[in-house]
Every structure is written in C-alpha cells, then in structure tokens.
C-alpha cells in the first residue's frame, strides 16, 4: 500500500491525474485482467514480466511553430487522454498498448513518397514533413467507429496543398495511403497475438475529391507539439467527418490511382466497415448502434458525456461530396 502525501495547493487539481498514479494504472489494469485465472498464463507471461520492469522514458516530442486556431466552445479532450487511449494495433490491441509499446519508435530518418498518377512525384524526408506547407492548428472532433469521440487540437496542413504540388493526372480518381511496415518496431505486424489479425501494412484510401477537401489534413502534431508515436508520428491523416480508422497513422506512401484502393478494415470485415466510413447516426454498425457516442473529456465514470452523433460528425460542408449517393449502401 502506498500512501501519498500531497501539498494543500495540489488539492485544487483534483481532476488532474497524478502522474505516478497514472503510470501505476497500467500495472493495475494488467494485473486485474488476469485476476485469479491461474490457468490463463500463456498470454499473461509477457505482461507479467512487465509488472516488475521500469517504464521506459517517453518518446521526446518538441514544440512546433504554427498558426493557432480560433477559440472554440468545444471542450477539448485532455492531452493525457489523447495520448493514452489509442487504437494502433501495430503496437497491440488494448487502448493503452500503443502508449506502452511505442515509446522508442524511431521517426528519424523518415521517408514519405507521393507518387502514382502524378506529374511530379515527391519525396519528403523527416524535416520536410514540417516544411511542406505552413503549419496551422485545427480543432477537430474525432469519432471512433466504437462509438466514443474526442476533441483534439491537431497541427498540420491541408492534404490538398501537397497533392497539388505533385500535380495529379486527370486519370487520378483515388488516393491510397500506407502505414510504415517495420515489424521490428511495430511488433503487432508479425505477431498474431498482438496485431489483431490484420494483414499489414495498414492501408487506407479516399476519393480524390475527399482528399482535396479543405477539411482533410495531414497532421504532424497535437497540442502544439510533434505527434507521439501512439498518435501516428511523424505524420498522419485526419479526416474529421469519417470514422477514426480512416485517419491512417505513420504514413510512408501516398499513391494516386484510378481504381478504388483496398482499405484494411474493409478487407477484414466488409459487412461492418465500408470504403466511405462516413460518420452516420442512421447507419448502425451490425453489432452496435451509431446513434449516440460517449465524448471523452475530463471526468470519470460519472461524467454525463453521452451525446447524439451527427451526420458527417457535424461537418455539414462535406455533404455535397455525397449528393445523390445512398449512404446506407455506401457506408
């Protein structure tokens, strides 16, 4: 039993998690998952070793220069939650796995290539990612297909800026994205016990007009700093009107094509995850409702945070992209 003495001045910060407790929770969660199940230990062993190990130092992020966003009335999801609650199966399928397993991920050197049906293929090195266009802050809602959501201040630039530099050919109709494939660094990629049965590398895609929409950004940071690995360092896509799995992380390749590219979750379960994956409260996931969502902000179990999900996640300006389309069929 640990007893922690606090200064009176700290009491006001009751909503802020003490870092020591916060770190300890990982150990706690791992222990309780296997509570009492002596028979279980095959998969527990790797974790059990961790119980006695020290946590590795966190990945080093740095501050970015950018044009700040206008004030918003939306309550932001606290940074600690944005960087500790992630789906990034390359590092494990639990929400806390990416934070636990990705801290020594190497982002330098990095190569991002834009090619395919373009006049001018582009290669970007790590430093180029931050100079490809002036950086600006965008505060976006992120709605996960699992029916929770966050509000995140991203730092990045419009994908259109980069695509225009590459000069898409008139035959280009789709954009295909690919995550780094590096099983040494991303242990889930060749370990079926960790990676959730996905065929790696993770791939995603957009229609060209979706990719060119001014809301679609490539993000290189959040909360004013470079991205931590669990959020998709060094560069990721953010498409705020689509479910989170469309916003592919740690991108190494962007390819313009004339055919609809394959996308990871669609390949895995086509009846559950479509190519479009627009946020839509009227089209349920076959196994759960999409009508409402739990907004993750400050506050614990008793936070009253259940809200209605909005069509296109509330970004009505994208509706013209889909005029005349049956969104129930093209989910």
């Amino acid at each position: 039993m640990r007893i922690k003495l606090t200064q009176p001045s700290e009491l006001k910060e009751s909503q802020v998690t003490d870092e020591a407790i916060y770190r300890d929770r990982r150990r706690l969660l791992k222990q309780m998952g296997f509570m009492g199940a002596g028979a279980l230990l095959a998969s527990a062993q790797a974790r059990a070793i961790n119980l006695f190990g020290e946590d590795k130092p966190d990945f080093q992020t740095r501050s970015l220069e950018y044009q700040a966003a206008n004030q918003t009335e939306q309550v932001l999801t606290p940074e600690t939650k944005v960087i500790s609650h992630n789906n990034f199966y390359e590092f494990g399928t639990d929400k806390t796995d990416p934070r636990d397993n990705a801290q020594d991920f190497q982002v330098q050197p990095w190569k991002l290539r834009i090619d395919g049906l373009v006049e001018q293929p582009i290669n970007l090195d790590y430093d180029d990612l931050f100079k490809a266009a002036p950086l600006e802050e965008r505060i976006y809602r992120l709605r996960c297909v699992e029916a929770w959501s966050m509000v995140i201040p991203w730092v990045g630039f419009e994908l259109a800026t980069l695509l225009k530099k590459a000069k898409p050919l008139s035959s280009a109709r789709y954009v295909a994205f690919e995550t780094l494939y590096d099983p040494k660094q991303m242990p889930g990629q060749n370990n079926p016990f960790m990676g959730g049965g996905i065929d790696y590398p993770y791939v995603e895609g957009l229609r060209l007009d979706e990719a060119m929409h001014p809301l679609t950004i490539l993000s290189v940071g959040l909360y004013g700093k470079t991205l931590p690995p669990q959020n998709g360092a060094p560069i990721r896509l953010v498409v705020p009107w689509k479910y989170g799995f469309k916003s592919i992380k740690s991108i190494v390749r962007i390819r313009l094509t004339d055919k609809q590219p394959p996308t990871t979750w669609n390949q895995l379960a086509a009846n559950e995850y479509g190519f479009y994956a627009n946020v839509n409260p009227n089209v349920d996931h076959p196994r759960w409702s999409q009508a409402r969502e739990r907004r993750i902000t400050k506050g614990g179990l008793f936070a009253d945070n259940r809200i209605d999900t909005q069509l296109f996640n509330g970004y009505d300006e994208v509706a013209p992209l889909y005029s005349g389309m049956d969104l129930k069929r093209h989910y």
Partner: peptide
C-alpha cells in the same frame, strides 16, 4: 471503481470498467 470514478483509469474509464468486470466475471 474508485479509480474510475476519480478519472484515474486511463482515457475511457467506462470502457475500462466494462472490460474489467466482464473479464473478471468470466475468470
């Protein structure tokens, strides 16, 4: 539950509590 109520159980205490109670019941 104490940790979840005081927001000390990761990003989504609701999910954490659901998984914990479910897996514990099965165990």
């Amino acid at each position: 539950y104490w940790r979840a109520a005081s927001d000390q159980l990761g990003g989504d205490p609701v999910e954490a509590v659901l998984h914990f109670t479910g897996i514990s019941a099965f165990n």
